[in-house]
Design a protein around this nucleic acid. Structure first.
Lengths: 252, 252
DNA sequence: CGCCAGGTTGATTTCGCTCAAGCAATGTGG
DNA sequence: CCACATTGCTTGAGCGAAATCAACCTGGCG
């Protein structure tokens, strides 16, 4: 993995801080925990949030970094990778949803970042530091409760992923693909579902918890069996029924 | 799995509700989210909490049940099993720590229970219903924040378990065993570490995410390699160094 | 043109699942 | 008190999915 290169390479990158920025526009477009904030509080947050554009390859934070606040993804795509031994790694999370808050777990648990966040697609991301967020949480109980609800949902997802992890590699990969459907799926001209997979083979593999070669082989078998066909980074699903059948692993 | 039998068998069991019960005693003995409560609030909770003793084999709630509140484990041991296809299952959780709160995830996410909770060791457990807990959460912001912190910690653990799930079966089993050390571990007369494993082979297997036969085989290889030896439900670790080496899977 | 990262492919190996048999401890009814 | 069913655990043989290893494309770029 060329993580070292990317980490080093990010130093000379970076866009200027976006100044004329109001979090209100962001929050109004999707339902998140931030809807608990009053207008005045949104104003405070907009003032102190550090927002800027990021290019693919830039690193938001590194594994082991002290967590100084949370990140709000306004647009784009970020992945968080956790390194293993001998250059293996796992994808802890995949973000893209605008309004998604990244890094709240280490923030709340008082933990270091457990993974390295790298920009995959050009993104606009705001950083809200501890000094801003802590008073908001203390003074607005609803914000805490909505964060709590979010945490409960995420915990449910994590629990579910744990069940997923004992399904076959095919099923795991199919589940990983489905996660991209909402944001990167569209109907092609011939009426079939096409899903863009904006990740490299290695990242896709890390997401499904398999090895990159296996990803290729499973795609090949999808092609042979007439389930789906892959061109570059777009998967065209030729038989939705058969593809959905892949999702039913041996558990659940 | 004989889950059906257990579920059916629990109907004629059950101890009387414990009346002279004050949650204060419970909370004072371990640090949990409940320490946010004022004395008055603890009084309210003690009044309305339904507490009683449970025998092994009794079922606290079933998979799919509506979640009507949370459970406080005062003492004992409970496991939560999630059924899979053809009578396989996974252990979602094991509880023993007194003061531990069980079922807060579905409570907060407005979800059904995802697993079936069965008593393993005689336990004393209190149920705090929605009508009691909701006002406490709404009126005491600190309670919400401490629950939030707990959720963040649990989320971290779930994340970690996800990493664990891609380690070898040996490593996973070793990790599962280590979880019992704190509560069920002690030094034997010859100075070696002994850990009681209060679960059946099947539960231990479900906890490590392997098959029961594999658990036996791994224990056998531990014996052959002089790492640890098992008698009935107690594991004696003969070489701590070698055992700890098992924990280092290929990841992390 | 040659280099190189990213991806593909096939041969081989290994881990742990599957299946089936056997055994020890416990309980039950005659 | 014994025959025998049941439950929980152990053991071994065989198999299969996916990891590993290694070679080989391929397209982009200096």
């Amino acid at each position: 993995m060329a993580l070292g290169r990317l980490v080093a390479g990010c130093i000379d990158m970076g866009h200027p801080r976006l100044r004329d920025f109001n979090c209100k526009h962001c929050f109004s477009r999707s339902k998140t925990q931030w809807e608990a904030l009053t207008d005045a509080e949104i104003e405070i947050m907009s003032e102190s949030a550090f927002c800027r554009e990021y290019d693919p390859g830039e690193v938001l934070f590194n594994e082991g970094d002290q967590c100084k606040g949370v990140y709000c993804i306004r647009s784009g795509l970020v992945v968080v990778r956790k390194l293993g031994k001998d250059s293996k790694y796992v994808l802890l999370r995949r973000f893209g949803q605008m309004g998604t808050t990244l890094g709240y777990r280490p923030f709340l648990a008082g933990d270091c970042h457990r993974g390295t966040a790298e920009i995959i697609k050009p993104s606009i991301i705001c950083h809200i530091d501890r000094a801003t967020l802590t008073p908001l949480l203390n003074n607005n109980p609803n914000l805490g409760l909505l964060f709590l609800k979010q945490a409960a949902v995420d915990l449910g997802n994590a629990e579910y992923e744990l069940l997923e992890s004992m399904m076959s590699a095919r099923a795991r990969l199919a589940h990983a693909i489905i996660l991209f459907k909402k944001r990167y799926g569209k109907l092609s001209s011939d009426g079939l579902l096409e899903i863009e997979l904006p990740l490299s083979r290695d990242d896709l593999a890390a997401m499904a918890g398999v090895h990159p070669e296996t990803v290729t082989k499973i795609f090949r078998s999808f092609l042979n069996e007439g389930v789906a066909e892959l061109t570059s980074h777009t998967l065209k699903i030729t038989s939705i029924d058969r593809f959905l059948a892949e999702l039913d692993g041996e558990y659940i």
